[in-house]
Design a protein around this nucleic acid. Sequence first.
DNA 1: CAAGATTGAAGCCTCAATCTTG
DNA 2: CAAGATTGAGGCTTCAATCTTG
Lengths: 135, 135
Amino acid sequence: MLRAYGALVKALDAELEAAHGLPLSSYEVLLQLDSTPDCKMRMCDLASSVQLSRSGLTRLADRLERDGLIERKSCDCDARGAYAALTPRGREVLKSASPTHHSAVRERFLSHFGDEELADLAAYWRRVLAESEKG
Amino acid sequence: MLRAYGALVKALDAELEAAHGLPLSSYEVLLQLDSTPDCKMRMCDLASSVQLSRSGLTRLADRLERDGLIERKSCDCDARGAYAALTPRGREVLKSASPTHHSAVRERFLSHFGDEELADLAAYWRRVLAESEKG
DNA sequence: CAAGATTGAAGCCTCAATCTTG
DNA sequence: CAAGATTGAGGCTTCAATCTTG
């Protein structure tokens, strides 16, 4: 059961990497940033939303910044904090990678289920997620 | 959606590691070995059953052998092959870790679902797994 | 002292190359 | 040459320690 999940994620990661040179973890960072009103998030919040440690995100952000997909900006209200902000190039890469990823998800996962089943699955996972966020 | 599973697996891994110093990947190797009639498997088969590359399993086997949980045995019928075999100590560690792991799985996952829902979930994942084994 | 972020050290995993055997 | 296993190099992630700011 857990095995199927591992295989699915590995396949999705490999596919995205092969097609766009973009690991799934990077894709998720860009996606998170793009989902906010001003396309920027604090490093700390970003780390927890993509399930990385703070140091893990620091290094991932280094790579993304080196590739010009994000840039760091300082925080006015709290000089300790730093923002990661999507660059135009970052948004561009995200836009071009999205169709690949979406079709991979559709092919490898969504296509196996009907609408009702998917709704059930989403509800099931919400239960598990709610639990893990408590602890 | 995929996030819930990632968090679950990390939590299970951390819990097992904290309680028995045994990472989830090691636990799965011991479990696989224990599930065979003579408690040994070829490295190659073991690698694919725990979803590691051959080199990844070589290294994991090195650590398990160093800790005395498995031992390597040569293969009579094919001198290229090597077996990984569970040691008495390995079986002991597996037996003592199992209750911890089972209760963690129950608490964090199984407890959220009824019998019928669990049967559905298992069937759902079988569809995904069947797909990934084709490619 | 607590929180946000980074850095150094170390662990785990993979790819490519290598060695041995079929 | 193909398959099983290992090794070297390199990438990604985490823990613990550090620096800066509240």
